[in-house]
């Protein structure tokens, strides 16, 4: 059986970035409308799926939005500590998206 495509195959942009000092927001953006709709309708990205992937309680996924104007799916995670506090490792929140790459899309 042929392997399913992954988010990395379908999305043109997968990124994470600070949204203020207490949150990191994730954007998955598609060039093609049909790829966007395929992922949106597949349910592989949802508040619960994201919480499971990152091993965090559901409440820490504070926002989950389908943003039609940009063919994008967007969610936001509350940081454990504010950005740049001692012990933090990603002050811009810019390298937290990698685990999204391998999500398979039916």
């Amino acid at each position: 059986m042929r392997n399913m495509p992954t988010l990395r195959d379908l999305a043109t942009t997968i990124r994470s970035k600070n949204a203020g000092v207490d949150h990191i927001t994730f954007d998955v953006i598609f060039r093609e409308r049909r790829d966007f709709e395929r992922v949106r309708d597949s349910g592989v990205l949802s508040r619960a799926k994201v919480a499971g992937l990152y091993g965090i309680p559901l409440e820490r996924v504070t926002d989950f939005v389908v943003f039609e104007p940009a063919n994008a799916i967007k969610f936001t995670i509350r940081r454990e500590r504010p950005s740049g506090s001692p012990g933090e490792s990603d002050v811009f929140g810019a390298q937290q998206y990698a685990p999204l790459f391998d999500i398979e899309v039916p």
Binding site: A19, I29, T62, V65, P69
Partner: peptide, 16 residues
């Protein structure tokens, strides 16, 4: 349109 729209949602919780 795509680059402008994707920037509108950049580094924010609520793109709206």
């Amino acid at each position: 349109p795509a680059s402008l729209a994707s920037h509108a949602m950049y580094e924010r919780r609520d793109p709206f």
